[in-house]
Each structure stands twice: as structure tokens, then as C-alpha cells.
């Protein structure tokens, strides 16, 4: 009981000291409204407030790309955006990629087939960058274009070549569908 009441006090104190703002947004197809502190990063909002821990937080200053998500269909780094800035936006995270029954989408399946991940920490960011790229570019990209597409994401395991193979496969299987 005592622990509970301390928790409540801390929370009340936080809200009293800090202006709280209201955000209404659509995350992975679900409309929601939340009260948040304006300084809350979008990455932390997704992970801590919504429990969408698929979005990974690596460097927290816009270098590693692990927290890449889609905002209104465009790839952005969620650690370089305040949650309040997403007010009125449509957000897609890595959780939106697979079907409800758990089956993988084309890019995810290509990653699995090509061993394009080892530890997997960077993978959600790669998947979202590629998701956005494939939506905007229907033509099979060159190696150079693929490298440009994933240049905003760091991977310390694979050496990238299997990721490049996965993207090529994702394009061929998409085009043969």
C-alpha cells in the first residue's frame, strides 16, 4: 500500500510541475488519445506508453536508425521526434508488418530466408526503412540504390551483404506475385 501511494504522489507531482499536452493519433490502424509530457520522445511513447517494444532505441540521437518508423508513410527516426509532434499523424511501427496470424510480410520473409539478421537489434529499423522505400520505388533497385536506401541504418553483425540480398529477393518475390 505504501509503495502504491508513493507512486501516486510522484505521478501527481510530475503532472503538477509539468504542463501536460493531449495527443490524438493513429498507431498501426488504431486511433488513440493520450495525455503526455511535451518532452516525451516518440520512441519512448511507443515503447513505454503503448508497449510497442518492436521499435528499438539504440543511440537516441539520430545516428543508428534502429528506431525508424513511418509517419504519414514516410520513414523517420522516432528518437528525433517528440510524441507531441505526432499529434494528428498516422504512425506505423514494425508491429504493423506481419499479418494477425503471425505470418511474415515479403520483406520479413526475405530477411529470414537470407539470414539478414544476427542479433536482430537493428532489424526493425531496417525493415521500416525498406518498407517505405519499396512503397515509393516499384522498380528493382540497383546495388547502389539499395545501399543508399539502407545508409541511414547501422548493423554491426551482418556486414550488410545479406541484407542487400534480402532486399533483392523481396523485390523479385513482390514482382512475381
Amino acid at each position: 500500500m505504501s509503495v502504491f501511494s508513493i507512486g501516486m504522489n510522484v505521478n501527481a507531482d510530475r503532472i503538477e510541475q509539468q504542463n501536460v499536452v493531449s495527443v490524438a493519433l493513429n498507431v498501426n490502424g488504431e486511433k488513440m488519445e493520450r495525455q503526455i509530457e511535451p518532452r516525451l520522445l516518440l520512441s519512448d511513447f511507443l515503447r513505454d506508453d503503448l508497449g510497442l517494444t518492436g521499435t528499438h532505441v539504440g543511440c537516441e540521437h539520430g545516428v543508428c536508425g534502429a528506431c525508424t518508423i513511418l509517419v504519414n508513410g514516410e520513414s523517420v527516426r522516432s528518437c528525433l521526434m517528440l510524441a507531441v509532434q505526432a499529434d494528428g499523424c498516422e504512425i506505423k511501427t514494425v508491429e504493423s508488418l506481419s499479418s494477425k496470424d503471425g505470418s511474415l510480410n515479403t520483406i520479413q520473409q526475405a530477411f529470414a530466408n537470407n539470414h539478414a539478421l544476427q542479433c536482430g537489434f537493428c532489424t526493425p529499423g531496417f525493415l521500416m526503412s525498406i518498407e517505405s522505400y519499396m512503397k515509393n520505388n516499384s522498380k528493382q533497385p540497383s546495388d547502389e540504390e539499395i545501399k543508399e536506401c539502407i545508409s541511414g541504418n547501422l548493423c554491426r553483425c551482418t556486414g550488410y551483404s545479406n541484407i542487400i540480398s534480402a532486399i533483392k529477393e523481396a523485390y523479385s518475390s513482390k514482382n512475381s506475385q
Partner: peptide, 9 residues
């Protein structure tokens, strides 16, 4: 300028 993700914002 940066990467796609940076140029988008």
C-alpha cells in the same frame, strides 16, 4: 544532406 529519414523531417 543526411539520410532519407533526416530529409523527411
Amino acid at each position: 544532406v543526411g539520410h532519407t529519414q533526416i530529409r523527411n523531417r
